[in-house]
């Protein structure tokens, strides 16, 4: 089942994926996203709550709509968190290679969050070490990153949002993996919801309110 010709926006697409960026404050989640979405690179304010970006990409002849959720690094609002994770197809775990605690927090805090909230068992995870442009300040080695990725059975990449090195690959890696998992292709929560809603002409009825997180 696909969301073929779904009209979420102006564009049609074959699949719609929800991708989540998580990790400590200031590791560069928003920057990675900005680097991926637009080619610009500049300093960003701390994310408050959640930011969304949508990008249409073509991978393997399929038109994909990526809804990327860029979360705030401060784990504060549990109720929000659950809705971030709900139905995510892919999760990008980001740490800063120059700040070791952001790396240790991934396994101490963020991996647990994923386990706790993630609803897609097959959800794809990618571990990203950001800021490799600051190689002289590096505090986490590439090998350590790979070891952690292995431990959590996810792919690993090091990138730099600043130089855009490997940024596209991060997303590509994730998307290709998602496309390999049939269950994820069937579980498009957005699509399902849209289809349900399409069948209901009385869409403004309050029963939709139940979907609020």
């Amino acid at each position: 089942m696909t969301g073929s010709s779904s009209k979420g926006g102006n564009n049609s697409y074959d699949y719609s994926f929800k991708i989540l960026l998580i990790g400590d404050s200031g590791v560069g989640k928003s920057s990675i996203l900005l680097s991926f979405i637009s080619n610009s690179v500049h300093d960003l304010s701390p994310t408050v709550g959640v930011d969304f970006k949508i990008k249409m990409v073509n991978v393997g002849g399929k038109r994909l709509k990526l809804t990327i959720w860029d979360t705030a690094g401060q784990e504060r609002f549990g109720t929000l968190m659950s809705s971030y994770y709900r139905g995510a197809h892919g999760i990008i775990l980001v740490y800063d290679v120059t700040r070791r605690e952001t790396f240790t927090n991934l396994s101490d805090i963020w991996a647990k969050e994923v386990e706790l909230y993630s609803t897609n068992q097959d959800c794809i995870k990618v571990l990203i070490g950001n800021k490799v442009d600051k190689d002289s300040e590096r505090a986490v080695s590439r090998e350590e990153g790979m070891a952690l990725a292995e431990e959590h059975k996810c792919s690993f990449l090091e990138c730099s949002a600043k130089t855009r090195e490997n940024v596209l690959q991060c997303f590509k890696e994730l998307i290709v993996k998602i496309l390999e998992v049939p269950s994820l292709l069937e579980k498009g929560p957005v699509i399902i919801k849209q289809q349900i809603l399409k069948q209901k002409p009385g869409y403004q009825a309050p029963h939709n309110g139940g979907c609020c997180s």
């Binding site: 959640v50 929000l80 869409y203 609020c212």
Partner: peptide
């Protein structure tokens, strides 16, 4: 309201920041 319902934005996450930092952004 109907539009937001249709696109599944009932939780109004996009407005979270607006309210949180009083539209500073």
């Amino acid at each position: 309201f109907a539009h937001l319902s249709r696109i599944g934005a009932e939780s109004l996450h996009f407005a979270f920041r607006m309210l949180m930092v009083l539209f500073r952004r």
